[in-house]
């Protein structure tokens, strides 16, 4: 319950935390494994097999191995988390996720003291993920977090949306959600976690290091080279809704700013 409160506090300025509709959240997606169009994932993700699903946890952990998703779910508690989602492309939504804390999953595997980062990997299955047949990114998609970011109580692995199982286009059956970072950090359809000592490579950073950093914290004062990050458009406003100001750490600064104390956020964007 304490963490529920924390997530509640994170929603400070709750007046603008009206969730987007199911249709909005499930029809406007970036999931390049299914194509680069916003509607490609909802049109093409239906064929993805998400059951059975195993997550391989390895690297610097006490109990490495392949974990069945059902077994994981039996050991964690699923909570509601109403989070803002801010895409690096300067649009945003509010999403009512269900999920569990990533920290709980890491505890199941047992993190060794020398581990400093968590590397994540998306499923690679081009026969079900047509976007992987073109070389727009180096597949599989990979992401990473510093261990303290990964252990933060706001960081969850989502399994549901609006009380229903996560739709494939939103990263079924298991995806990361890090609400204070740009959406591309929240890697979808996760099949592998590796605890490492060195900062792991991340897909968009590898593709264009000048445009996408490892940290990718939402920051209205650090522009993307090709567009401003000072404002964002909330999805669902139609033709005449104005842009709204983007909040530092996407509005979660009170909870997470401490993770970056003393760090130059313009240099390590």
């Amino acid at each position: 319950a304490g963490l529920g409160t924390l997530a509640g506090a994170a929603s400070a300025g709750a007046e603008d935390l009206t969730p987007n509709s199911w249709d909005e959240i499930t029809s406007y997606n970036n999931f390049y494994e299914f194509g680069t169009g916003k509607d490609d994932p909802s049109r093409k993700a239906g064929a993805l097999t998400t059951d059975p699903w195993t997550v391989e946890i390895g690297g610097l952990v006490e109990r490495p191995g392949r974990y069945d998703l059902g077994d994981i779910l039996a050991k964690v508690s699923i909570e509601d988390r109403l989070y803002r989602l801010r895409c690096v492309e300067a649009w945003s939504m509010v999403v009512p996720w269900q999920g569990f804390e990533l920290a709980d999953l890491l505890t199941i595997a047992g993190v060794q003291p020398s581990a400093k980062y968590v590397a994540f990997e998306t499923l690679y299955r081009p026969e079900e993920m047509p976007g992987q047949q073109s070389r727009i990114l180096d597949w599989p998609y990979v992401e990473g977090l510093r261990l303290d970011e990964a252990m933060h109580p706001l960081t969850i692995m989502a399994t549901g949306l609006y009380g229903k199982p996560l739709p494939n286009q939103n990263g079924a059956p298991l995806r990361l959600v890090v609400p204070w970072k740009y959406g591309f950090k929240s890697i979808k359809s996760v099949v592998r976690l590796t605890l490492t000592e060195k900062q792991p490579p991340t897909s968009w950073n590898r593709y264009a290091p000048r445009e996408y950093g490892f940290y990718a914290n939402v920051n209205p004062t650090v522009d993307h080279p090709r567009w401003s990050q000072a404002t964002e458009r909330r999805i669902g406003g139609g033709f005449f809704a104005p842009r709204v100001p983007t909040l530092m750490f996407n509005g979660y600064g009170e909870e997470v700013a401490g993770l970056y104390a003393g760090m130059d956020l313009a240099a390590r964007f």
């Binding site: 029809s27 916003k38 649009w91 458009r233 999805i235 669902g236 139609g238 033709f239």
Partner: peptide, 13 residues
């Protein structure tokens, strides 16, 4: 289309 929802949920872009 954009004014009537035919261009999806982000009609401006």
């Amino acid at each position: 289309l954009g004014a009537t929802g035919g261009l999806g949920v982000e009609p401006i872009n």
